[in-house]
Amino acid sequence: MIKLFVQLFFQFFHIGVFSFGGGYATLPFLYEIAEKFHWYSTRQLTDMLAISSITPGPIGVNMATFAGFSTSGILGALIATIAIVLPSLIIVTITSKIIDKFKTNLYVKNAVRALKPAGCALLSAVGIKLIFSSHLHLLGILILVTFISTSFIKKYDPLFYLGISAIIGFCLGYFHLIGV
């Protein structure tokens, strides 16, 4: 049991250290784990892709919890989940310390200034790619345009947009207006 805990910890810690680029960057590692350790099958991983989009949290975290839980219960789930975020905690802390230390250096200052438009551009690219990849059809685009254009008059809480769009999805599906 202890050996399993240690393995769980190191495998998911390893993902936390080596996955770059977000989104599905953790997937190759998760497939590797499925093949090597059989904590879950590749079929379960594919299912998890669907599940992860309807449960809170990034897929890496979801998969860590699932792998831990299915092999050794709550404690295993806890260990694997902590293990995948621990590297981030360490790396981000070190990075922000370095940035704080050299904040007054003109070069660092200007480099950090360049980060803002870069971050904004990367996020814009995610948004644009998402529109083309998420099978919205004409109806979905229409709803999206309505949401965004009404936001110029009044912007609601994120919860409102998620809730309303969930209801719309349910209703449209009920009347067979979307082909999911």
Binding site: L162, I164, A166, I168, G169
Partner: peptide
């Protein structure tokens, strides 16, 4: 279906 809808909400956000 619900999550097809939520997808639109997510892109809106």
């Amino acid at each position: 279906n619900i999550f097809w809808g939520v997808g639109i909400g997510v892109i809106t956000l």
